[in-house]
Write a protein that binds this DNA or RNA. Structure first.
Lengths: 164, 164
DNA sequence: GCCAATGCGTCAACATTGCTGCCATAATCG
DNA sequence: CGATTATGGCAGCAATGTTGACGCATTGGC
Protein backbone atom coordinates (compact mmCIF):
# COMPACT_ATOMS: atom_id res chain seq x y z
CA UNK A 1 0.00 0.00 0.00
CA UNK A 2 2.73 2.41 1.01
CA UNK A 3 5.28 2.40 -1.76
CA UNK A 4 8.62 3.52 -0.28
CA UNK A 5 9.56 5.11 -3.61
CA UNK A 6 7.47 8.25 -4.17
CA UNK A 7 8.45 8.22 -7.86
CA UNK A 8 9.84 5.32 -9.81
CA UNK A 9 13.57 4.82 -9.59
CA UNK A 10 15.00 7.09 -12.30
CA UNK A 11 17.95 4.77 -12.98
CA UNK A 12 15.63 1.88 -13.61
CA UNK A 13 13.42 3.98 -15.82
CA UNK A 14 16.40 5.07 -17.83
CA UNK A 15 17.63 1.53 -18.35
CA UNK A 16 14.14 0.42 -19.24
CA UNK A 17 13.74 3.32 -21.63
CA UNK A 18 16.96 2.52 -23.44
CA UNK A 19 16.17 -1.17 -23.73
CA UNK A 20 12.75 -0.35 -25.10
CA UNK A 21 14.40 1.77 -27.76
CA UNK A 22 16.75 -1.04 -28.73
CA UNK A 23 13.86 -3.46 -28.96
CA UNK A 24 11.57 -1.16 -30.91
CA UNK A 25 14.33 -0.64 -33.44
CA UNK A 26 14.76 -4.38 -33.77
CA UNK A 27 11.05 -5.12 -34.15
CA UNK A 28 10.46 -2.29 -36.59
CA UNK A 29 13.39 -3.29 -38.76
CA UNK A 30 12.35 -6.93 -38.66
CA UNK A 31 8.83 -6.23 -39.91
CA UNK A 32 9.93 -3.44 -42.23
CA UNK A 33 12.16 -5.79 -44.21
CA UNK A 34 9.94 -8.86 -44.18
CA UNK A 35 7.67 -7.82 -47.06
CA UNK A 36 10.27 -7.00 -49.71
CA UNK A 37 12.26 -10.05 -48.65
CA UNK A 38 9.40 -12.25 -49.80
CA UNK A 39 9.24 -10.64 -53.23
CA UNK A 40 13.00 -10.79 -53.57
CA UNK A 41 13.08 -14.47 -52.70
CA UNK A 42 10.76 -15.24 -55.60
CA UNK A 43 13.25 -13.58 -57.93
CA UNK A 44 16.26 -15.34 -56.46
CA UNK A 45 17.46 -12.11 -54.92
CA UNK A 46 18.16 -11.02 -51.37
CA UNK A 47 18.03 -7.97 -49.19
CA UNK A 48 21.39 -6.73 -50.44
CA UNK A 49 19.97 -6.52 -53.96
CA UNK A 50 17.13 -4.39 -52.68
CA UNK A 51 19.51 -1.98 -51.02
CA UNK A 52 21.47 -1.56 -54.24
CA UNK A 53 18.34 -1.11 -56.33
CA UNK A 54 16.96 1.36 -53.83
CA UNK A 55 19.99 3.62 -53.67
CA UNK A 56 20.74 3.48 -57.37
CA UNK A 57 17.12 4.42 -58.02
CA UNK A 58 17.48 7.26 -55.58
CA UNK A 59 20.77 8.45 -57.03
CA UNK A 60 20.79 7.76 -60.76
CA UNK A 61 24.25 7.92 -62.27
CA UNK A 62 26.09 7.30 -59.04
CA UNK A 63 29.49 5.59 -59.23
CA UNK A 64 30.25 2.32 -57.47
CA UNK A 65 32.37 4.07 -54.88
CA UNK A 66 29.41 6.12 -53.67
CA UNK A 67 27.39 2.97 -53.24
CA UNK A 68 30.18 1.39 -51.25
CA UNK A 69 30.29 4.39 -48.97
CA UNK A 70 26.59 4.12 -48.26
CA UNK A 71 26.36 0.39 -47.76
CA UNK A 72 29.60 0.04 -45.78
CA UNK A 73 30.42 -3.33 -47.24
CA UNK A 74 33.49 -4.43 -49.13
CA UNK A 75 33.98 -3.92 -52.82
CA UNK A 76 33.96 -7.66 -53.36
CA UNK A 77 30.65 -8.16 -51.58
CA UNK A 78 29.04 -5.39 -53.58
CA UNK A 79 30.62 -6.62 -56.79
CA UNK A 80 28.82 -9.93 -56.60
CA UNK A 81 25.44 -8.36 -55.88
CA UNK A 82 25.86 -5.64 -58.47
CA UNK A 83 27.12 -8.09 -61.08
CA UNK A 84 24.01 -10.19 -60.74
CA UNK A 85 21.69 -7.19 -61.00
CA UNK A 86 23.47 -6.14 -64.20
CA UNK A 87 23.40 -9.64 -65.69
CA UNK A 88 19.71 -10.01 -64.95
CA UNK A 89 19.01 -6.59 -66.42
CA UNK A 90 17.85 -4.51 -63.46
CA UNK A 91 20.80 -2.13 -63.56
CA UNK A 92 22.96 -0.77 -66.34
CA UNK A 93 26.32 0.93 -66.36
CA UNK A 94 27.69 3.85 -68.30
CA UNK A 95 31.29 4.93 -68.43
CA UNK A 96 31.94 8.13 -66.54
CA UNK A 97 32.41 11.25 -68.63
CA UNK A 98 34.64 13.17 -66.28
CA UNK A 99 36.50 10.06 -65.17
CA UNK A 100 36.35 7.20 -67.64
CA UNK A 101 37.26 4.68 -64.94
CA UNK A 102 33.97 5.18 -63.21
CA UNK A 103 30.96 3.05 -63.97
CA UNK A 104 27.90 5.20 -63.43
CA UNK A 105 24.95 3.14 -62.29
CA UNK A 106 21.30 3.51 -63.16
CA UNK A 107 18.17 1.42 -63.13
CA UNK A 108 16.81 -0.02 -66.34
CA UNK A 109 13.04 0.41 -66.83
CA UNK A 110 12.70 -3.16 -65.57
CA UNK A 111 14.81 -2.22 -62.55
CA UNK A 112 12.75 0.86 -61.86
CA UNK A 113 9.61 -1.25 -61.93
CA UNK A 114 11.08 -3.65 -59.41
CA UNK A 115 12.20 -0.77 -57.23
CA UNK A 116 8.68 0.58 -57.10
CA UNK A 117 7.29 -2.84 -56.34
CA UNK A 118 9.77 -3.44 -53.54
CA UNK A 119 9.59 -0.05 -51.92
CA UNK A 120 5.87 0.44 -52.29
CA UNK A 121 5.00 -1.57 -49.20
CA UNK A 122 7.68 0.15 -47.18
CA UNK A 123 6.45 3.58 -48.19
CA UNK A 124 2.93 2.60 -47.29
CA UNK A 125 4.10 1.31 -43.94
CA UNK A 126 5.83 4.59 -43.23
CA UNK A 127 2.86 6.61 -44.44
CA UNK A 128 0.55 4.76 -42.06
CA UNK A 129 2.93 5.08 -39.15
CA UNK A 130 3.48 8.79 -39.82
CA UNK A 131 -0.20 9.49 -40.16
CA UNK A 132 -0.98 7.64 -36.96
CA UNK A 133 1.75 9.34 -34.98
CA UNK A 134 1.34 12.93 -36.11
CA UNK A 135 3.71 15.58 -37.43
CA UNK A 136 5.43 16.29 -34.11
CA UNK A 137 6.11 12.61 -33.59
CA UNK A 138 7.60 12.36 -37.07
CA UNK A 139 9.92 15.18 -36.21
CA UNK A 140 11.01 13.46 -33.03
CA UNK A 141 11.45 10.21 -34.87
CA UNK A 142 13.80 11.89 -37.30
CA UNK A 143 15.73 13.60 -34.56
CA UNK A 144 16.36 10.42 -32.62
CA UNK A 145 17.21 8.30 -35.64
CA UNK A 146 19.62 10.95 -36.85
CA UNK A 147 21.25 10.91 -33.43
CA UNK A 148 21.75 7.16 -33.73
CA UNK A 149 23.79 7.54 -36.90
CA UNK A 150 27.55 7.85 -36.61
CA UNK A 151 28.44 11.50 -36.32
CA UNK A 152 30.63 11.57 -39.41
CA UNK A 153 27.89 9.93 -41.47
CA UNK A 154 25.07 12.23 -40.50
CA UNK A 155 25.53 14.85 -43.17
CA UNK A 156 25.77 12.26 -45.90
CA UNK A 157 22.72 10.45 -44.59
CA UNK A 158 20.60 13.57 -44.48
CA UNK A 159 21.69 14.56 -47.98
CA UNK A 160 19.68 11.56 -49.11
CA UNK A 161 19.37 11.76 -52.88
CA UNK A 162 21.73 13.76 -55.03
CA UNK A 163 20.47 16.94 -53.49
CA UNK A 164 23.56 17.31 -51.35
CA UNK B 1 13.68 34.01 -59.51
CA UNK B 2 9.96 33.60 -59.74
CA UNK B 3 9.16 30.08 -58.64
CA UNK B 4 5.88 29.06 -60.28
CA UNK B 5 5.01 26.94 -57.23
CA UNK B 6 4.06 29.19 -54.30
CA UNK B 7 4.52 26.27 -51.92
CA UNK B 8 6.39 23.07 -52.60
CA UNK B 9 4.40 20.33 -54.26
CA UNK B 10 2.80 18.43 -51.37
CA UNK B 11 2.96 15.12 -53.23
CA UNK B 12 6.66 15.52 -53.77
CA UNK B 13 7.17 16.48 -50.17
CA UNK B 14 5.33 13.42 -49.04
CA UNK B 15 7.36 11.10 -51.23
CA UNK B 16 10.56 12.78 -50.08
CA UNK B 17 9.47 12.53 -46.47
CA UNK B 18 8.77 8.82 -46.75
CA UNK B 19 12.04 8.08 -48.53
CA UNK B 20 13.93 10.00 -45.88
CA UNK B 21 12.31 7.83 -43.24
CA UNK B 22 13.31 4.67 -45.05
CA UNK B 23 16.87 5.88 -45.38
CA UNK B 24 17.19 7.08 -41.81
CA UNK B 25 16.06 3.69 -40.62
CA UNK B 26 18.66 2.02 -42.81
CA UNK B 27 21.50 4.27 -41.72
CA UNK B 28 20.62 4.09 -38.06
CA UNK B 29 20.37 0.32 -38.10
CA UNK B 30 23.62 0.04 -40.05
CA UNK B 31 25.59 2.06 -37.52
CA UNK B 32 23.69 0.69 -34.54
CA UNK B 33 24.79 -2.86 -35.32
CA UNK B 34 28.35 -2.14 -36.45
CA UNK B 35 29.89 -1.93 -32.98
CA UNK B 36 28.67 -5.20 -31.47
CA UNK B 37 29.35 -6.94 -34.77
CA UNK B 38 33.05 -6.23 -34.32
CA UNK B 39 33.13 -7.71 -30.82
CA UNK B 40 31.15 -10.71 -31.97
CA UNK B 41 33.50 -11.36 -34.87
CA UNK B 42 36.42 -11.67 -32.45
CA UNK B 43 34.52 -14.38 -30.62
CA UNK B 44 33.55 -16.23 -33.79
CA UNK B 45 29.94 -15.21 -33.31
CA UNK B 46 27.51 -13.20 -35.41
CA UNK B 47 24.60 -10.86 -35.07
CA UNK B 48 22.17 -13.71 -34.58
CA UNK B 49 24.02 -14.75 -31.44
CA UNK B 50 23.74 -11.24 -30.10
CA UNK B 51 20.00 -11.24 -30.62
CA UNK B 52 19.64 -14.50 -28.72
CA UNK B 53 21.87 -13.33 -25.89
CA UNK B 54 20.01 -10.04 -25.71
CA UNK B 55 16.52 -11.48 -25.48
CA UNK B 56 17.45 -14.30 -23.14
CA UNK B 57 19.11 -11.75 -20.88
CA UNK B 58 15.98 -9.67 -21.03
CA UNK B 59 13.68 -12.60 -20.38
CA UNK B 60 15.44 -15.08 -18.12
CA UNK B 61 13.78 -18.47 -18.10
CA UNK B 62 12.05 -18.05 -21.44
CA UNK B 63 11.34 -21.19 -23.46
CA UNK B 64 12.71 -21.70 -26.96
CA UNK B 65 9.30 -21.15 -28.51
CA UNK B 66 9.13 -17.60 -27.14
CA UNK B 67 12.49 -16.83 -28.69
CA UNK B 68 11.31 -18.18 -32.03
CA UNK B 69 8.28 -15.95 -31.88
CA UNK B 70 10.42 -12.88 -31.32
CA UNK B 71 13.11 -13.57 -33.87
CA UNK B 72 10.79 -14.87 -36.60
CA UNK B 73 13.30 -17.38 -37.88
CA UNK B 74 12.99 -21.12 -38.24
CA UNK B 75 13.56 -23.55 -35.46
CA UNK B 76 16.53 -24.99 -37.33
CA UNK B 77 18.24 -21.64 -37.69
CA UNK B 78 17.78 -20.83 -34.05
CA UNK B 79 18.83 -24.30 -33.00
CA UNK B 80 22.24 -23.90 -34.59
CA UNK B 81 22.84 -20.51 -33.00
CA UNK B 82 21.50 -21.55 -29.63
CA UNK B 83 23.43 -24.80 -29.69
CA UNK B 84 26.69 -22.97 -30.14
CA UNK B 85 25.94 -20.51 -27.36
CA UNK B 86 25.24 -23.41 -25.02
CA UNK B 87 28.33 -25.35 -26.05
CA UNK B 88 30.52 -22.29 -25.55
CA UNK B 89 28.92 -21.62 -22.18
CA UNK B 90 27.06 -18.36 -22.64
CA UNK B 91 23.62 -19.83 -22.13
CA UNK B 92 22.29 -22.67 -20.04
CA UNK B 93 19.07 -24.63 -20.14
CA UNK B 94 16.80 -25.90 -17.42
CA UNK B 95 13.92 -28.28 -17.88
CA UNK B 96 10.56 -26.62 -17.44
CA UNK B 97 8.73 -27.32 -14.20
CA UNK B 98 5.19 -26.90 -15.43
CA UNK B 99 5.99 -28.51 -18.78
CA UNK B 100 9.01 -30.79 -18.73
CA UNK B 101 9.36 -30.61 -22.51
CA UNK B 102 10.35 -27.00 -22.36
CA UNK B 103 13.96 -25.90 -22.17
CA UNK B 104 14.02 -22.70 -20.18
CA UNK B 105 16.88 -20.48 -21.23
CA UNK B 106 19.06 -18.22 -19.14
CA UNK B 107 22.44 -16.55 -19.39
CA UNK B 108 25.39 -17.95 -17.50
CA UNK B 109 27.46 -15.36 -15.61
CA UNK B 110 29.84 -15.44 -18.57
CA UNK B 111 26.88 -14.87 -20.89
CA UNK B 112 25.61 -11.99 -18.81
CA UNK B 113 29.04 -10.38 -18.98
CA UNK B 114 29.05 -10.66 -22.76
CA UNK B 115 25.54 -9.29 -22.94
CA UNK B 116 26.59 -6.21 -21.01
CA UNK B 117 29.65 -5.77 -23.18
CA UNK B 118 27.66 -6.07 -26.41
CA UNK B 119 24.73 -3.93 -25.42
CA UNK B 120 26.71 -1.27 -23.58
CA UNK B 121 27.62 0.65 -26.73
CA UNK B 122 24.09 0.43 -28.04
CA UNK B 123 22.66 1.75 -24.80
CA UNK B 124 25.15 4.59 -24.83
CA UNK B 125 24.26 5.38 -28.42
CA UNK B 126 20.58 5.54 -27.51
CA UNK B 127 21.28 7.57 -24.40
CA UNK B 128 23.17 10.16 -26.43
CA UNK B 129 20.53 10.30 -29.14
CA UNK B 130 17.72 10.59 -26.58
CA UNK B 131 19.50 13.29 -24.65
CA UNK B 132 20.22 15.27 -27.80
CA UNK B 133 16.68 14.98 -29.11
CA UNK B 134 14.69 15.67 -25.95
CA UNK B 135 11.82 13.94 -24.21
CA UNK B 136 9.15 14.92 -26.74
CA UNK B 137 11.24 13.64 -29.60
CA UNK B 138 11.75 10.34 -27.79
CA UNK B 139 8.02 10.03 -27.46
CA UNK B 140 7.56 10.65 -31.18
CA UNK B 141 10.30 8.21 -32.00
CA UNK B 142 8.51 5.52 -30.03
CA UNK B 143 5.18 6.30 -31.61
CA UNK B 144 6.48 6.06 -35.15
CA UNK B 145 8.56 2.94 -34.57
CA UNK B 146 5.62 1.26 -32.92
CA UNK B 147 3.54 2.13 -35.95
CA UNK B 148 6.08 0.45 -38.20
CA UNK B 149 5.68 -2.87 -36.40
CA UNK B 150 3.14 -5.36 -37.70
CA UNK B 151 -0.15 -4.72 -36.00
CA UNK B 152 -0.46 -8.18 -34.50
CA UNK B 153 3.07 -7.92 -33.08
CA UNK B 154 2.73 -4.56 -31.41
CA UNK B 155 1.45 -5.73 -28.05
CA UNK B 156 4.13 -8.36 -27.75
CA UNK B 157 6.81 -5.88 -28.75
CA UNK B 158 5.73 -3.31 -26.21
CA UNK B 159 5.56 -5.92 -23.48
CA UNK B 160 9.33 -6.06 -23.79
CA UNK B 161 10.67 -8.04 -20.84
CA UNK B 162 8.55 -10.44 -18.86
CA UNK B 163 6.46 -7.61 -17.54
CA UNK B 164 3.56 -8.51 -19.86
C1' DG C 1 -4.31 -46.06 -21.03
C1' DC C 2 -4.02 -44.98 -25.91
C1' DC C 3 -2.82 -41.54 -29.25
C1' DA C 4 -2.43 -37.29 -31.36
C1' DA C 5 -0.32 -32.93 -30.63
C1' DT C 6 3.38 -30.19 -28.70
C1' DG C 7 8.23 -28.67 -27.59
C1' DC C 8 12.58 -29.36 -28.88
C1' DG C 9 16.59 -31.13 -31.35
C1' DT C 10 19.09 -32.79 -35.51
C1' DC C 11 20.80 -34.24 -40.17
C1' DA C 12 21.25 -32.79 -44.90
C1' DA C 13 21.37 -29.62 -48.57
C1' DC C 14 21.23 -25.11 -50.37
C1' DA C 15 21.37 -19.78 -51.19
C1' DT C 16 22.59 -15.23 -49.67
C1' DT C 17 25.71 -12.11 -47.66
C1' DG C 18 29.40 -10.88 -45.54
C1' DC C 19 34.74 -11.31 -45.06
C1' DT C 20 40.08 -11.67 -46.54
C1' DG C 21 43.69 -12.00 -49.82
C1' DC C 22 45.50 -11.62 -54.26
C1' DC C 23 45.67 -10.08 -58.95
C1' DA C 24 44.53 -7.20 -63.16
C1' DT C 25 43.27 -3.20 -65.98
C1' DA C 26 42.68 1.35 -66.99
C1' DA C 27 42.81 6.10 -66.12
C1' DT C 28 44.14 10.03 -63.66
C1' DC C 29 47.37 12.95 -61.03
C1' DG C 30 51.67 14.94 -59.82
C1' DC D 1 56.86 8.16 -65.81
C1' DG D 2 55.32 6.46 -61.53
C1' DA D 3 51.92 6.42 -57.87
C1' DT D 4 47.33 6.39 -56.82
C1' DT D 5 42.44 5.70 -57.81
C1' DA D 6 38.28 3.20 -59.64
C1' DT D 7 36.79 -0.85 -60.81
C1' DG D 8 36.50 -5.90 -61.62
C1' DG D 9 37.47 -10.92 -60.90
C1' DC D 10 38.75 -15.32 -58.51
C1' DA D 11 39.27 -18.46 -54.48
C1' DG D 12 38.01 -19.65 -50.08
C1' DC D 13 35.67 -19.25 -45.65
C1' DA D 14 32.01 -18.19 -42.10
C1' DA D 15 27.51 -16.77 -40.54
C1' DT D 16 22.59 -16.75 -41.32
C1' DG D 17 18.82 -17.93 -43.26
C1' DT D 18 15.73 -21.53 -45.84
C1' DT D 19 13.05 -26.34 -46.64
C1' DG D 20 12.23 -31.06 -45.67
C1' DA D 21 12.29 -35.02 -42.93
C1' DC D 22 12.86 -37.48 -38.83
C1' DG D 23 13.25 -38.67 -33.68
C1' DC D 24 12.15 -38.38 -28.88
C1' DA D 25 9.99 -37.09 -24.70
C1' DT D 26 6.03 -35.21 -22.71
C1' DT D 27 1.46 -33.64 -22.36
C1' DG D 28 -3.37 -33.66 -22.61
C1' DG D 29 -7.85 -35.11 -24.40
C1' DC D 30 -11.02 -38.88 -24.96
Amino acid sequence: MNDPRPVANPLFLREEELRQGIELLFYAYRDFTAEPDKILAELGLGRAHHRVIYFVGRNPGMPVSALLDILKITKQSLSRVLGKLIRVGFIQQKAGTRDARQRLLELTPKGAALERRLTEGQRRRFATAYRGAGADAVDGFRKVLTGLIDENERLKALAGGSRG
